[in-house]
Nucleic acid binder design. Sequence first.
DNA 1: GATTGTGAAAGCGTTCACAGCC
DNA 2: GGCTGTGAACGCTTTCACAATC
Lengths: 227, 227
Amino acid sequence: MAQSRRRIPEASVIRLPVYLRILIEQFEQQVDNISSERLAELAGVNAAKVRKDLSYLGSYGTRGVGYEAEYLIYQIRRELGLTHDWPVVIVGAGNLGQALAGYGGFSERGFHVAGIVDVDDNKIGSVIAGIRIRALDELAKIVSGHEVVIGVVATPADAAQDAADRLIAAGITSILNFAPAVLSVPASVVVRKVDLATELQVLSYYEQRRLTALHSVPTGSTRGASA
Amino acid sequence: MAQSRRRIPEASVIRLPVYLRILIEQFEQQVDNISSERLAELAGVNAAKVRKDLSYLGSYGTRGVGYEAEYLIYQIRRELGLTHDWPVVIVGAGNLGQALAGYGGFSERGFHVAGIVDVDDNKIGSVIAGIRIRALDELAKIVSGHEVVIGVVATPADAAQDAADRLIAAGITSILNFAPAVLSVPASVVVRKVDLATELQVLSYYEQRRLTALHSVPTGSTRGASA
DNA sequence: GATTGTGAAAGCGTTCACAGCC
DNA sequence: GGCTGTGAACGCTTTCACAATC
């Protein structure tokens, strides 16, 4: 009965892109129908979780049969807002910003880089993956010109808050933050953080425990751990 | 009373690196003592959470006063296993692998790149950020030679499982996976996943909702959202 | 017979609120 | 008086288990 306009719990939202990727892969391999059991196996989670997650979208499975891959792909895409391409703008054309600008995985999955800006005059004008690095001042122009709502912060930590402030002033409402800094933003702006060093530090914790510990490691499954 | 050898809940482990970074920053700015209230403000979380998280390390605060920054830095470092530098090996020298190899944030926070390998003969031999790209075959040699236990998968999705298998065969026990693929690994290996496109897709969901929705966005705080 | 969809139970993580200590 | 440390309450997430349906 869970109808589509109901809010989906955040924990489920995070898994939907995983299911989507797997379903697309399976569909490309001529798999038309898939059970929660099989999808769970491929996603490295348990089948009840898959069913509950998918039930938030609506009742799109068939009892005794499973889920039709193509239809489910469409429904997940619709729910995630992936029926159209989203332009994103990147602030910071260092190592990471440039890698993100050139990262094929974005365009493959519904995003394209509308622009990348940097403060450094030496970088401005260079072209990476067909995109010219522009001045920080041009940010507002790029955002309004392409109707961008998602911004990526790929600056050093000490420039991150300023980058966020400028993005928000330009009209951005969602931010993906790669800088190792906590951003202070209005409640209406959604921020997600990806901190590469933090991820390694978490692994370091478990390695550290392994050395001292009598207890075993926390991830019980034989499949890949979550993130 | 929570003594240091007790297992720390994963949710807390993930926040410790954030506290650590803030404490280091504050200490560098001559702040010797910090309250849970202030630390919470800087970390974008609530003060009770900070106190509970820190209580898993032991009782290192002083009632009526707060936490001594320097001592707490030491305790968090010790708990996270950051009292020494960790070598990491990167598989995949594409856009992302190269950016990671050159990323200053790693060395700043306790990690150094012991090696980077790729299958592509055209890439092998090139030097990025002072590190020479080596052949995939040399992986085992690098891992045993430098006693590496942490591996980074920065390959395309279809090469990720093979990369993981090779890392594990070489003796790696922790993997940071940037490929958009679920890795199948033995239960003794810890995997953390960073999926860049997934993060954008989650933002897309909230933007999508904003358009249709009557309800407001989920992250209530005026500070940066979690990740 | 197989598999979904979902209430109910169990398990975690967060927040409250206050006793305990400086 | 101020701030930590933590039991208890609350809320969210996962898992179980089975009725409903094909």
